[in-house]
Design a protein around this nucleic acid. Structure first.
Length: 420
RNA sequence: GGGGGAGUGUCCCGAGUGGCAAAGGGGGCGGACUGUAAAUCCGCUGGCUUAGCCUUCGUAGGUUCGAGUCCUACCUCCCCCA
């Protein structure tokens, strides 16, 4: 899009060059605003989970670049809207969480943001407001009178998020229907509190963001802007960050840095350049050089992608350790002692453990039934030797001197079982 | 308020004559081929103490040797009439 547009502001220049922009309500206007002084912008995150996953990483990076280019990022926690739910096309209404759960989730999410943006009290520092601060206090009658009158149900019914829900014959409760009103109100409130004039989000949020823009105009705020990022799918169309093993979490306690590194390492060829631009801070000329690598050489670019992305989130040391572990495991065929491991008490291990339960224990398969199936398909290995018998056991002789045994699912997933 | 249609394997879509662990896709996982890629081909895709047992078809009952399939009530959605 907007090939001809030449941003004057550093913020939009970076976002444009690196491919973060899908749609904007007024690029020129926003550019002028950004160039004229410090820009405050926000992105909303729900707190339904104890951490964020890669699906949110693109948004986090936008806030990161905003701060890097002199702006003030606001990471809005949807503590209030989390109690409502989002008509995002999901079939089931979101489950309602307690205040305690929401607070715990916010704390986990904050840890992720701390890796990417700097918080504090000065003008340039990021803030993490929670919309429960104003939504929880809302008075229904006053809200209807002052804000509700400005929403058109006709327009809301025309929005994709609502239309798909209706078309699929699934219930859309009034509660959820109000979500976009509250989100629009958030924008106005953030403008009042922080002078925030820009809301960013994924392209699926366009309608919601625009609704906030309209509301602002009707309520007499300064001009507000909307900016959305492209929906990130892999080159072959799969939604990003969803694997059978689970979501790609950004919390090292939920997904080890090694596994995070592996996630990026396994990117498709066609995604490498795009991902380098979006998810690393490497300069564009360096990215261009890496992207030009052809054939098997592009694996070098993937390693760089993995290390840079991992370094951003988990630190340079963790990234290099992950790279070293991968090198030992995949390139040298050695048993890397640093692979993710699962501990098992010696008393429980005894003289040996059934292979089926060992793999379940390691988390490589979800059930013994799946373990049996994988064995039939030749997918399970103990110390790189395929398991052929469901009744096979892992004895003490399978352990290395340091008391570990390597369990593998397929060629890529390895876990050490560590007897302690 | 009246009439008609629908809800299927807890990822999604979707067949289903009373014998059903339930067709077929998509997605996912594994195997082969490769470069820890894509594409392609093959296998798998409820749980368990697996020659067997247990739990699944909106919810709760009922008929039957046997119910996803028939009956009753309820919930939810769609369409037509008022």
């Amino acid at each position: 899009m907007t090939d001809a547009f030449k941003p004057r502001s550093e913020f939009l220049r970076v976002l444009t060059e690196r491919g973060y922009i899908h749609q904007c309500s007024d690029l020129a206007g926003l550019d002028a605003k950004a160039a004229s002084g410090s820009l405050a912008a926000y992105i909303g995150f729900d707190c339904t989970a104890p951490s964020l996953h890669v699906g949110s990483l693109l948004q986090i990076m936008m806030l990161h670049w905003l701060q890097q280019t002199g702006g003030r990022p606001l990471a809005l926690m949807g503590g209030g809207t989390t109690m409502v739910g989002d008509p995002s096309g999901k079939d089931e209404s979101r489950k309602l969480l307690t205040v305690e759960q929401i607070e715990a989730n916010k704390a986990g999410i904050r840890k992720v943001f701390d890796r990417f943006i700097r918080f504090g009290d000065s003008k340039q520092d990021a803030a993490m407001p929670d919309n429960a601060e104003w939504l929880a206090k809302l008075n229904y009658i006053e809200f209807l009178r002052d804000v509700g009158r400005h929403f058109s149900v006709n327009r809301m019914l025309a929005m994709d998020s609502v239309k798909t829900r209706l078309a699929r014959e699934h219930e859309l409760s009034f509660l959820e229907f109000n979500y976009m009103c509250l989100q629009a109100y958030d924008f106005v409130e953030l403008n009042r509190r922080y002078g925030c004039v820009l809301q960013m989000g994924g392209s699926d949020q366009w309608g919601n963001i625009i609704t906030g823009l309209d509301l602002g105009r009707r309520l007499g705020t300064e001009q507000l802007y909307a900016l959305t990022s492209p929906l990130i799918a892999t080159a072959s169309g799969a939604k990003m960050g969803k694997t059978a093993a689970g979501a790609i979490w950004l919390d090292p306690a939920m997904l080890s840095p090694y596994d995070y590194w592996q996630f990026w390492r396994n990117s498709e060829d066609a995604d490498v350049e795009r991902f380098l631009k979006l998810f690393t801070r490497l300069p564009l000329d360096e990215i261009a050089r890496l992207a030009a690598l052809g054939g098997a050489e592009i694996n070098e670019a993937k390693k760089t992608l993995a290390s840079e992305a991992t370094a951003l989130l988990h630190g340079r040391d963790a990234a290099e350790a992950s790279a070293a572990t991968a090198r030992q495991t995949f390139e040298e065929g050695a048993l890397a002692d640093t692979l993710p491991s699962v501990e098992i008490p010696a008393a429980e291990f005894g003289e040996g453990l059934g292979a089926l339960s060992a793999f379940v224990r390691a988390g490589l398969v979800a059930s013994t039934g799946e373990a049996r199936r994988q064995i039939r398909g030749g997918g399970l290995k103990v110390n790189d030797v395929a398991v052929t018998d469901e009744r096979a056991a892992i004895g003490r002789d399978a352990l290395t001197a340091s008391g570990v045994v390597k369990l593998s699912l397929g060629r890529k997933k390895h876990v050490l079982l560590r007897v302690v």
